[in-house]
């Protein structure tokens, strides 16, 4: 287990959003969390990325409590791309990517030759080396997403946490980002934990899926066999038809209508 949560509870103020949650992530896997709006999936990612501290329970990174490990040490293992982020539009892509090196820098925070090599590697890996000098504000949504992923890669993490990486992107960019995620997983043995809204993309691109309903794990398991019509009815309240995607060898669900009650 590279990362696991032990009976964690997560609160916003006094409102408990997640109760006694247990999740285990194996190294080298792509794990996707799905669930209806408001079920707490983004909250779980916030906890895994150390932003939200559990009110009870523990999160273990390689068997050590994630909030006891020095924050920079943890940042060398886990990189995070949340939904809420912001970059001054006049920063160059390279400047943005260079912040991925922050946890690795010594006193004075100067970038060394090795850091620049890693930045170059990260922009190459995400296919944006030709836009290194461009201002972030001039990039399209998909290009910006790749720039952020490059920043995360420059952290040289073992785990990458992505909160809805395809939101606001058109279908071709969605495909491009998910293909990139898959490639990073395969070539770097990078463990990926992400939240997706599209169930079919989750099935196709992950090894494991966790289905969250009302702050609890409804079920989890192998992505290709976990989802079934009854689950979609109970968790998402939809009636769905299933087709076989023979190209990717996985089921493909078509939502037909809301279930009544």
């Amino acid at each position: 287990m590279i990362l696991q949560t032990k009976n964690i509870c997560l609160k916003y103020g006094s409102k408990e959003v997640i109760k006694d949650l247990n999740i285990s992530i194996t190294k080298g896997e792509i794990v996707t969390i799905i669930g209806p709006n408001g079920c707490g999936k983004s909250t779980i990612l916030k906890a895994l990325s150390r932003y939200l501290k559990p009110s009870r329970g523990k999160i273990l990174l390689e068997d050590k409590d994630i909030h006891i490990i020095d924050t920079k040490k943890a940042a060398k293992k886990i990189a995070v791309l949340p939904q809420v982020r912001n970059v001054p539009s006049d920063f160059s892509v390279e400047t943005l990517v260079s912040y991925g090196r922050y946890p690795h820098l010594g006193f004075g925070n100067r970038l060394k030759k090795k850091d620049f090599e890693i930045i170059d590697w990260a922009v190459k890996k995400t296919g944006i080396e030709h836009m290194k000098d461009r201002r972030v504000g001039t990039l399209s949504g998909g290009e910006q997403q790749r720039a952020w992923i490059a920043m995360a890669l420059a952290q040289k993490p073992e785990i990458l946490v992505l909160d809805e990486p395809t939101t606001f992107l058109d279908i071709s960019y969605q495909l491009e980002i998910l293909e990139l995620v898959k490639e990073l997983n395969e070539t770097l043995n990078l463990t990926i934990i992400m939240v997706l809204h599209n169930i079919n993309q989750a099935i196709r691109y992950s090894h494991k899926i966790y289905v969250i309903k009302e702050g609890k794990v409804y079920s989890h398991g192998d992505s290709k066999s976990l989802i079934h019509k009854d689950l979609l009815r109970k968790v998402f309240h939809i009636e769905a038809d299933v087709l076989e995607d023979s190209t990717n060898k996985c089921p493909y669900y078509i939502a037909q209508k809301m279930t009544s009650g």
């Binding site: 916030k46 990325s49 150390r50 932003y51 924050t71 920079k72 040490k73 943890a74 940042a75 060398k76 886990i78 990189a79 995070v80 791309l81 949340p82 809420v84 982020r85 912001n86 970059v87 001054p88 912040y99 991925g100 922050y102 946890p103 925070n109 995360a152 952290q155 946490v161």
Partner: peptide, 20 residues
Amino acid sequence: PKKLNILMLGDEIATGLGLH
């Protein structure tokens, strides 16, 4: 200056990068 630059990226990103 670098700490402030990173803080501008958002609290979650900054936490993820190892900034208190």
